[in-house]
Amino acid sequence: MMASIAEPVTKPVSRFRYILDRRETLGAVMVAPAILYVLLLVGGPFLLAVYYSVSAYTIYDPSWRFVGLANFAQIIKNPVFLQTLGNTFLFTFGSQFLGLILGKFGAFLLMRPFAGRKIVRALIMLPWAVPIALAAVAWEWMFDSLYSVINWSMIALGIIDRSDAPNWLGNPHLAMLCVIIVNAWRFFPFAIVIFLAGITSVPQDIIDAAIVDGAGFWRRNYQIVLPLILPIVAVGLIFGIVFTFTDLSIVYLLTNGGPVNATSVLGFQGFQVGIVSGDVSHGAAISLFMLPVLLAVVIVVLRFIRRREV
């Protein structure tokens, strides 16, 4: 008597598994945590800032009273705010320009073979990885009026006399230069990565054809390579501008906005007015003032990228 072999019974596929097999649904499920994170940690504080900016709310008078755009009108008429706005633009674009220059030459240097290149590539990322609080302490000693290693080096080389040694953080113009240098130092490893990614994406055939045509180093890089990688560099520049425009850590740790508001930026002033002074409504208005400025900058850069791609 032959034993009958039972056929395996196939279990019905659950409807939930079938839904997750669809590309549109799976994509939405994967993106949902990031969207939730943005809504909770960015959208919530943003709506709260809008709520406070149109009120007369302070920690001394917590009763909410609607005042419309009066807070924005008042801060625009404040000369300290106008000076701070100018400082923010100078700090942001000055440090980004310097960081891009250092990043470009650093990328060209790291693309050339030399002994210890892997170690240099690892060390070059330290400014981006080191906590800014520790880096600011080191830079503060370097710019110290008495113990500055920069001043003592120039004195030892006979460039300046001890009586002519600059007070880096005490002079308004030099203090702004110092915070720009520190932020550029912090940004240029990111710029190096952006330039390395862009340069390595350029097809080698284009470079070889340029060499055959007699193009030298500068002509190859500034007339061929740089126009091709401009969209990539522009995207990196957007991130750098947004992070720098809203940053207050370097100014807070290095100069505390001084001397005489010479290095005060919007993020620092918003913190001082809204948190330290307790004027929450005006502090929120100062912080929200960064939004339309950043939006305009991002739109301009994105339109530039679109034209380059076309």
Rank of each mutant, 00 (worst) to 15 (best):
G86C: 02
F81H: 02
A165V: 06
F217W: 13
A215V: 12
M154E: 09
A234R: 00
G267Y: 04
F46G: 10
L41V: 15
R307H: 12
L47D: 06
L36A: 15
G158Q: 08
P166E: 08
L291P: 00
L254N: 02
V235A: 12
M154R: 09
P259Q: 06
K118D: 14
R65L: 01
M290C: 13
P166A: 04
T263G: 04
L40G: 12
N151W: 04
I241C: 02
T58Y: 14
A129Y: 04
I19S: 01
F188C: 06
L174M: 13
A197D: 10
T263M: 05
W185Y: 13
T263Y: 02
V276H: 07
M142T: 08
E7D: 11
A32S: 12
A135R: 07
I224L: 15
L41M: 15
A122D: 12
F304Y: 15
S277F: 06
L39K: 03
G240Y: 05
V298C: 11
F271D: 07
A135P: 02
D21R: 14
M176A: 06
T244K: 02
R186L: 09
W128V: 07
P79T: 03
L69I: 15
P166D: 09
N151C: 09
L226F: 14
G278E: 09
S277Q: 13
V38M: 13
I275Y: 03
D164C: 02
A209D: 08
I211G: 05
A262F: 08
G240R: 00
Q223I: 04
G258M: 13
H282I: 08
R23Y: 10
L69V: 13
I275V: 13
M290N: 06
A184Y: 08
L288Q: 07
I207A: 04
L123R: 00
S4K: 08
A262C: 06
L196A: 08
S14D: 13
I35H: 01
R308Y: 04
A175Q: 01
S264H: 11
G214D: 11
V251Q: 07
